[in-house]
Amino acid sequence: MTSTNRPLPKPDEDSDEFWRYCSLHELRMQRCNTCGHFRFRPSVICPNCLSTEASWERLSGTAQIHSFVVVHQQMVVGYDQVPYVIALVDLDEGPRMTTRIVDCEANDLSIGLQVQVTFEDYTDDISLPVFVPSKSRV
């Protein structure tokens, strides 16, 4: 368990399932039972068809880097070890999310690079989904 003063998410009625699955090291997102659209961030309604029926489906955890930046100055409490990499990743199932790319050299990253989810444990209830470059990369 990572001891930290980092800001942690405070799940609410809409998102507590998402974070509960993360704590089990499963990346799950809501998939609309009506139109099949995966959505993120969690919501009571499908932004594609407005259906309220959805299931929490497990994702492959594979994604591509949509964009990434290298933070060189401490700007967030608990993130005093710079530089580190923040990214937007496009999950294979469609949704995009903000995350960090870990266990990598920033110089080795590029847009389109395949990455795989892994989890950082902070508390019994909160694990953050972060990504590492996929081992299969050339």
């Binding site: 980092r6 800001p7 942690l8 998410p9 405070k10 799940p11 609410d12 998102s15 961030r41 964009s67 990434f68 930046v69 933070v71 700007m75 967030v76 608990g78 993130y79 580190y84 923040i86 990214a87 937007l88 999310m97 903000t98 995350t99 960090r100 953050l128 972060v130």
Partner: peptide, 18 residues
């Protein structure tokens, strides 16, 4: 605060740098 900041995302500067 729920889906960006916990990853060390400080806000506007990172958004526009991305």
């Amino acid at each position: 605060d729920e889906f960006d900041r916990p990853f060390g995302h400080p806000g506007a500067t990172a958004v526009h740098a991305l």
